[in-house]
Each structure stands twice: as C-alpha cells, then as structure tokens.
Write a protein that binds this DNA or RNA. Structure first.
Lengths: 216, 216
DNA sequence: AAGGTTATTCTTGTATACACGATAATTGAC
DNA sequence: GTCAATTATCGTGTATACAAGAATAACCTT
C-alpha cells in the first residue's frame, strides 16, 4: 500500500481492469469502490481522474465512469504503435549496449528458454515481459522506456491471449533468439525490423487474437 | 469552459505550463490555484492528479505538486520518440491516403507556404501544427493520432524555440514539400524516413535547441 | 393498456471541515 | 554567533455534507 490512498487505489483499480475483473463497458460506481476499499469517495475520485487521463476509463460528466472498450481495431492500432516503439528501443539498444544491459537481456532470455522448452505458458508470459523490459532499459532512453512499459502494461491481457495460440510460444522464443543476435551484433536496423515483426500483429495473428477474445 | 470544472482546470493549468507561465520546477499551491480560478481545492486537486498521470507535473506525497523539468536530455529523448511516431504516421498516411486527408494536408501545406514566404514565424508555428495534425489524421489510426497529438502538445514550446533558429523556417518548409511528395506518391518508407529527419533533433539541431533554452 | 409526464431517488460534482505531516521560525544552549 | 531542538504554522490528505443533474419509477391521461 502506497503512501497515499489515491495512488494506491489507482494501481488497484488499474490492475482490476487489466486483469479483466472490471470488464470493458463496466460501470465504476464511486460508492461501491469506496466501500470495497474502505475509504471515502474523495480518493476514489482522484484515482478515477487519473485513470481517465491515462485513457483506461472514460468519465462522462454527471454520468459516471466506465471502463473503455478498445475494440479489436483499436487494439490493432495499439499493437502497431507498440511495434514501432519496441523497434526503436531495439535499434537504440543495439547501438548503445553496455555490459549490464547485455547481461540483463541474456538472463531474461535464458529464463524464456527454460519456460518455453518446459511449455509453461504462464512462466513464459512473465519471463517474456522481463525480456522486453530489459530491451527497453537497454535503449538507455528513460522516456522511451517509460512509454514502452506503459503501453506494454495496457496490452498485457491481449499479449497473454496471444500466447495461447498454437505454437506461438515456440515461435516467439525463436524470434527472441534472432532479436538477441541482432542486438548483440550491434545491428540496429535488423533489431528494429525483427522487433517490429515480433510485436506487431499483422495478418493471421490479428484474427487469432480476435478469435481468442471472442471465445472468452 | 467545459462542463465540469475539473476538466476545465486541467486544460487551463496545462496551457499555463506549456506556455511557460508555470515554469519547470515551479510549485503549484492548491489554494493559490483555487483562488485564482475562483473554485475550491477539490477540482484543483482533481486537475493536478490528471496532470500528474500525464506526466506534466509531479505530486510528491504531502509535499505538493511541482512542474516537471524535463531537462535537455529528456527533451531529446522525447523528440526521438516523436520522430518515430511521426514516421509511422507518415508511412501509414502514404499507404492509406484518401481524398479528404489529401486535401487537408494540401490546405495546411499551402498555409505553411504563405507564412514561410512571409517570414511570419508565429503564423508558421500554427500552420505547421495543423500540417502535422493533418498527417496524424491521414494515418487513419485513431490511437496513433491521439499519441502523436499528445506528445506534440507537450513538445510545443520547444518546437517554437526551434523555429527561431536562423533559416530553420525555410528549411522546415522545404522538408515539408518533400514529405508531401512522398506521401502523395504513396511512398511510405520515404515518408517515414523524411519525417524522422524532419522531427528528430540530431546533431547541431539539438545544440541549437539547448542554446535557445539557455538564453531564455 | 400504452405512452407521456412528473416526482422521487440515486449518483455525481463541488465545497468545507478536520487531521496529520512537513517545513519554517524562534528560542535556547554551547 | 551559530547550530540544534522544539514549537508553531502552513499545506496536503481524507472525510463528510450539500447541491444539482440524470435515471428510474409511479401516476395520470388518453
């Protein structure tokens, strides 16, 4: 629990949204939330204002807050931007790689290998996140790292769905290998290209995602 | 004045920050703001929470809100990301261009030409913004358009400084011409490349910016 | 019985009150 | 005279109260 209740609530509600406990379209009643967390409406409202500013919910004047439903098309657009930012991060990482970043990427990559060969989707999901975070950090651009991490968090639930697609786990890991090679070889353009392909959801990967979203 | 005071205050304070009335590092006293705008502390706090979420200010627990000072390095990083996003917008615009977008870009481009040839820096500043917004819209990606517009707003004061550098106005416009050609020709890669170069502040353009920031 | 209108209730928006913590100021000691 | 400690003041954090608008339910009219 953070030092101030508003911030804590923001994280709490954000997690609830991202873990789909508060589904898209759901109404967020201030009193209900206040009772649930044992606080007054004031910090709840502050948390909601922040989530509105981030774009996770929408507050319609005098009509309350609802969880935004991005819809398949919007999600596609978000992955498109994510792919671009990750590509930039990869190209910068290739150029600026230092020992510490290199080892962080290696370590996360190793953990991905383990969970991938074990076929452990949940473990891979977490290790994969660490792997990508390591690349963001290796870009040595604080702002880019921040933007990537924020968008990554927002796309987390959909990334998770993606991993459930047949063979996606093995494919993902082999893509990681190529990405690591490019970064370690200092080939920024190649790292960018590979990461764009790895993160973006062109063609059938988009339909796969829509299908798994519908079947939920 | 928007329908609810909190949102209105957010815009008001945001503008004050972006127009440098509230300089980086300045403390934002809730009571002072409340009195200035003739409201109570509650909506002021809500506005501040939102600005904190966006990243314009920082609220340190029990110590109040201060305007974030990005510093030259962080600004460079932000331009780097901006360049990447604009590049993506340009490449999408080239692929997806329709008549309405084409005309919007043409119109804004025409206005840029007028203010550039007239040497009117302020007019060019506004026309330039319209030109870039037209490209964001032409990408036909709502999310990308939104991200670009938000980052563009945040970098606005620095873009303005940049225009004051000698010959930058003419250079900027000639770059616009090439960008328009590439987009209209449907050459996405070229549009991306040109926009990256146009927006990014590599090499001497970065030092120029730092110099004009210091001399203020 | 169905549709519209009015009244009631419920929720949000804003203000105010109170408590706690941080910073600043004043006083005392060395 | 300077530094430290204690106290006072000021500002933030949270709760509560009140007002106004929106949703809903009930009632009347046709």
């Amino acid at each position: 629990m953070s030092e101030n209740v508003g911030r804590w609530l923001r994280d709490e509600i954000e997690n609830a949204i991202l873990s789909n406990e508060f589904a898209p379209g759901a109404r967020l009643d201030e009193m209900v939330l206040a009772n649930r967390f044992g606080v007054s409406r004031t910090p709840v409202r502050e948390a909601l204002m922040q989530l509105d500013a981030i774009g996770l919910i929408e507050i319609r004047p005098r009509r309350g807050a609802v969880v935004i439903d991005p819809g398949p098309h919007r999600i596609y657009e978000m992955f498109e931007v994510m792919a671009e930012l990750e590509g930039l991060a990869g190209s910068l990482a290739a150029r600026r790689l230092d020992t510490a970043s290199r080892e962080a990427i290696m370590a996360a990559h190793g953990r991905c290998e383990q969970s991938a060969s074990a076929g452990d989707t949940d473990a891979y999901y977490y290790n994969n996140e660490e792997f990508h975070n390591a690349i963001y950090a290796a870009s040595r651009s604080d702002f880019l790292e921040q933007q990537c991490a924020q968008l990554h968090r927002r796309l987390r639930p959909y990334r998770r769905l993606q991993l459930r697609v047949r063979n996606r786990l093995a494919t993902s890991f082999s893509e990681h290998c190529a990405i690591v090679d490019a970064i370690f070889a200092g080939d920024g353009d190649e790292a960018r290209r590979l990461l764009r392909g790895h993160v973006g959801i062109q063609g059938e990967r988009f339909s796969d995602l829509v299908a798994s979203m519908a079947s939920r």
